[in-house]
Design a protein around this nucleic acid. Structure first.
Lengths: 148, 148
DNA sequence: ATGCATGCAAAGACTTTGCAAATTC
DNA sequence: GAATTTGCAAAGTCTTTGCATGCAT
């Protein structure tokens, strides 16, 4: 089941309709990397069809979220960011605070330790989010020998 | 060194001034729990001195962040949230998705595993953020036997 | 045909900024 | 006294909403 089918199924289930705009926004979204803002998605969609308005993009990225195709990424600041959620296994992020590079990873030891925390407090797990910050190798090197 | 001294030191260091408003906002902030929004802080400060404006609260909570007294909490939505950062060891969050209860914890195994991830990708660590979601014991119980 | 979806623009939520007056050092 | 802060209100960002029209079923 690919993303388009997921969306169609979701729509049919609740009497909603598939439209040209929806399909274009989905395509644009799928073609972009994770951490997409509504603004950037709007720009991308606008190139495919300049008749699509911002509000439609906002409305649909939210719809995709409800349909399980997108997920909001945690943010400190600035506009809301979305990432792909379908056939994208759960993962955590390792971000460079200098250049912004993002590595997505999954670490068994961390997942295991998290389960232990849930058990310790008697919570029933339903998901988590983790982001590690640091300097990527390139930036760390540049940092040590500025402009040699 | 308590919070007030930290602030005074920070201010002196850069030729800034300690004002009544600053002090009141700091007091209000210290008296509140973590995950304080500017709005709620404003309300609290307003009770102490109704001559203090919103802008001043916004300006100062940001100042506190720069001074290391506060830290922005990760959010999906809604207004920005701040938590205490001084003499509050790093910790992670375990939140109940039903009632919103938040447990702050530190887990050695997780911290160790994170270091391993940094090493694996060659990143220089600078911090991280993690939030686990689930149902707290109370909500889980209520969930299994709704209104018995 | 019957609604849902869209585009536009206006409104809303949250935050920042410009400026004259007040305050701190 | 010189310079930072403040309160107010206006402006800015980002997002949502109201409404008439356009479309999908």
């Amino acid at each position: 089941m690919d993303e388009r089918q997921v969306l169609e199924h979701y729509l049919k289930e609740r009497g909603l309709k598939m439209t040209k705009a929806r399909l274009l926004i989905l395509e644009a979204f799928l073609g972009m990397e994770s951490h997409v803002t509504a603004e950037r998605l709007y720009e991308a969609v606008h190139k495919l069809d300049d008749g699509i308005g911002q509000a439609t993009v906002f409305r649909n990225i939210r719809l995709f979220t409800d349909a399980g195709l997108a997920r909001e990424a945690c943010r400190d600041d600035g506009p809301r960011q979305y990432e792909h959620a379908w056939r994208h296994a759960h993962h955590d992020h390792l971000s460079c605070i200098q250049c912004g590079a993002v590595i997505e990873f999954v670490d068994g030891a961390i997942e295991t330790a998290q389960q232990a925390v849930y058990k310790k407090y008697g919570y029933v797990p339903s998901g988590h989010r983790m982001e590690l910050f640091g300097l990527c190798p390139d930036c760390a090197a540049r940092h040590n020998s500025p402009q040699t």
